[in-house]
């Protein structure tokens, strides 16, 4: 029995924030010059009372409306988010109720950022291929905009909000599937991408900088250090060559970073998917959004082999191969 990605849908909040709006707010800032480097010209921002769970519900309903599955079919919900509704209860439990999924389903949250989608696929594969479940809903939903200080213009430019819902099912199809996986973690990098507010470590330290902090140069250096090696670890684990991969879909961090990684790995541009101009970096939702777009644009077709690579906050990273049905 294979775990297979059967369907992907996503939802972006209605409000679009353009670079022109940022430029108006920061008139002495060279927004256009930076936008050309990052490849990001607009992003969607959740409304004041619109949370990651709300985006997740819409993405999941789109998936159900597509006919890929019904809520009653789902026997496990995995939700990856770093902007949950509450410290407790688990947001995946709230999703179960809001989506009308059976109370016999399992549900859990896991807290990862840009590596989260690939980790979610690994958990899904484990649950399905050990025979515990058959139909899993993996939701990656993020509203980083709520963690960002309004004056932090660079980080505001990079991140957008969004949610993706992925249906992973048990199939008797040896020609398609997910895996192998490679993983990586380096918690020494934690201070370089961090939100200190909202949890317990700094609960009594109101003078701490609490909003999202990102050390861009350190994150960039981490990525250059780690990701090429990770890609080659995966290729070795799979017993394949880079040339056998039909499409590379990396976490859509920013175009500048992705182009450097592509050059370092000597991947042809036509095999390397980058599409974040009007979406920005949507953290754990970025890879499934890119998958859906690649399918929509005809860049990823049935039977093709894609490499997915997630990397970021933690530091945490992971990569896998997916052959789509």
């Amino acid at each position: 029995m294979n775990a297979v990605i059967s369907a992907v849908e996503y939802h972006l909040p209605q409000t679009i924030q353009t670079n022109e709006e940022l430029a108006a707010q920061f008139p002495h800032w060279q927004v256009q010059q930076i936008a050309e480097k990052t490849g990001i010209h607009a992003r969607h921002i959740a409304a004041e009372n619109e949370l990651a769970s709300d985006l997740a519900v819409v993405a999941a309903r789109k998936l159900f409306d597509s006919g890929a599955a019904a809520p009653a079919d789902i026997d496990f919900i995995l939700l990856c988010t770093q902007s949950p509704d509450y410290l407790l209860p688990t947001t995946a439990c709230l999703l179960q109720s809001r989506l009308g999924i059976a109370t016999s389903a399992g549900a859990l949250d896991f807290n990862l950022g840009c590596s989260g989608y690939v980790y979610g696929l690994s958990l899904a594969k484990g649950l399905i291929e050990t025979g515990q479940i058959r139909n899993l809903l993996l939701v990656t939903a993020e509203t980083y905009s709520k963690h960002i200080h309004p004056e932090d213009r660079t980080v505001r430019l990079l991140f957008g909000d969004g949610a993706a819902a992925t249906l992973i099912q048990a199939r008797q199809s040896p020609d398609v599937g997910i895996g192998p996986f490679v993983f990586g973690t380096d918690g020494a990098g934690a201070p370089n991408l961090i939100v200190r507010k909202g949890a317990l470590r700094h609960i009594d330290s109101p003078d701490q900088p609490l909003d999202l902090y990102m050390n861009g140069p350190e994150i960039f250096a981490f990525t250059l250090n780690t990701i090429p090696k990770t890609v080659h670890r995966l290729i070795a684990a799979a017993g394949k060559s880079l040339a056998e991969i039909d499409l590379f879909i990396f976490h859509q961090a920013n175009a500048y970073m992705l182009e450097h990684l592509r050059n370092r790995l000597e991947i042809p541009a036509e095999k390397f998917f980058v599409e974040l101009s009007d979406i920005g970096n949507t953290v754990s939702a970025s890879i499934p959004i890119a998958i859906k777009q690649a399918q929509r644009f005809g860049r990823l077709r049935s039977g093709q082999l894609a490499m997915l690579v997630g990397f970021g906050v933690g530091y945490s990273w992971s990569a896998t191969l997916v052959r789509f049905p």
Partner: peptide, 8 residues
């Protein structure tokens, strides 16, 4: 490729 912390 710089190791962590060098730019700082």
């Amino acid at each position: 490729t710089l190791p962590s912390g060098k730019m700082e």
